[in-house]
């Protein structure tokens, strides 16, 4: 399973993107479960969010969802944090 995250917006307006392949990881099952929960609650199109809030575009095996701070589920936040290797 390929998971990619693009983060845009934020106070700094600096874009971040990263991708991982779960097949190379020992926590593949856990990540697949998070990914499943993450796309379930995401929106198909990007909203405007709150001023200076981060926007996240999460793509899992070709399916993309959009989420924005502060309305991330725990699963979405953990997934974003794992893929970007940065606090979310």
């Amino acid at each position: 399973m390929r998971i990619s995250v693009i983060r845009t917006g934020g106070f700094a307006g600096i874009e971040r993107r990263a991708e991982l392949d779960t097949s190379e990881r020992p926590d593949a099952t856990h990540l697949a479960a998070l990914a499943h929960q993450a796309v379930e609650k995401g929106a198909a199109a990007a909203g405007r969010g709150v001023p200076d809030g981060f926007h996240y575009e999460i793509t899992i095996d070709g399916r993309t969802v959009h989420v924005a701070d502060p309305h991330l589920s725990d699963a979405q936040r953990e997934l974003v944090r794992t893929v970007l290797k940065e606090g979310a």
Binding site: F11, G53, R77, G87
Partner: peptide, 18 residues
């Protein structure tokens, strides 16, 4: 707010700082 959070924002009602 959150962990190692590289941002601050206004959520419509209050200020939030990482």
């Amino acid at each position: 707010y959150s962990e190692d959070y590289n941002n601050a924002f206004w959520d419509g009602e209050q200020m939030v700082f990482g």
